Computed example of a mutant assay.
Amino acid sequence: MINALFAARPERWETYEAPLKAAFVANGLKVDLRQDFAPEDVDYIVYAPNSGVQDFRPYTRCKAVLNLWAGVEKITGNETLTQPLCRMVDPGLTQSMVEWVTGHVLRYHLEIDRSVALQDRWQPYVPPLAEERPVTILGLGALGQACAKALTQLGFPVSGWSRTAKDLPDVTCHHGSDGLKPALADAQIVVLLLPDTPQTENILNAQSLGFLPQGARLINPGRGPLIDDTALLAALDSGQIAHATLDVFRVEPLPHDHPYWAHPRVTVTPHIAAETRPLTASRVIAENIRRGEAGEDFVHVVDRERGY
């Protein structure tokens, strides 16, 4: 019998218990899934970084910590964690991110906000075709690649930037410190899908916002610290950035007195762009446990030095 500790907030247990157990059975695994094992009896930890488990030293038998979240920035610095850490790459989350990003890119492209605001006046607006609206995606991991594919299929010219070199069909790829400026140079819409690491913090700052053509729009469903908030507010006030749709923030929930709430050129959404889906995420967890028991390499193992 394999012992798996479910280490997440109590309300998540009701959501995940049945899908996880079904996924274990489907993978031919005999797993005892509980919330209250003795640490020395645990083989795997199904984990959320906001759980009560923060000291991993007692889990001497644990073969891997399997994160339920896509983000791992809240756990990678934990010095007690010596076991392999696997981040969540959930097909359900990926699809929901594609739908959210595509929807907001089209919202900007078709000037839907403007049409709604002027619905009592007859002021026709004919948008350009998608092929005339360059989009840049910062971050070309699983989420960025999926969004880039969807947008290219709609006809948008898509550029992407990543820390390391990537080669994607129909996407103009840039990388490294020298690649950021050309990636942003003609972007009318920018989508941020980078992880939160020391290297990506404030990647959009006063200088890089200036790389964009005047009137560009921003969409951030990635991580709050990717943007220098002070610089973005100044760029919005000057008109360098025409509008920003922000789903993630440095402090969440976003404080009621934050300038973003009242700014006429900002749309705030409450971290809803993509959520781990219990059914599909459970299959990812079960597959990694199957791999661990078979002596195979885990998938989606976090590189501690890179932070994701």
Rank of each mutant, 00 (worst) to 15 (best):
A8L: 06
E17I: 00
V25S: 13
G28V: 04
L29A: 04
K30A: 14
Q35Y: 01
D36Y: 05
F37A: 13
P39L: 09
P39S: 11
D43Q: 11
Y47T: 08
A48F: 05
Q54E: 08
F56L: 08
R57E: 14
T60Q: 13
A64T: 12
V65P: 00
W69E: 11
W69C: 10
E73D: 15
M88T: 01
L93G: 04
E99K: 09
V101L: 02
V105S: 08
L110F: 03
A117Q: 10
D120T: 15
Q123M: 12
L129A: 11
E131G: 14
L138Q: 06
L138W: 08
A146G: 02
A148C: 11
S159T: 11
D167P: 00
D167Q: 15
P169A: 15
V171R: 03
V171G: 03
Q188N: 04
L192H: 07
P195D: 02
N205P: 00
Q207G: 00
S208Q: 06
G215L: 02
G215N: 03
R217S: 04
I219H: 01
N220F: 02
G224N: 12
D229W: 07
A235R: 04
L246P: 00
V248I: 05
I272C: 15
T276E: 01
A286L: 10
R290K: 15
G295W: 12
G295M: 07
F298P: 01
F298I: 06
R304W: 02
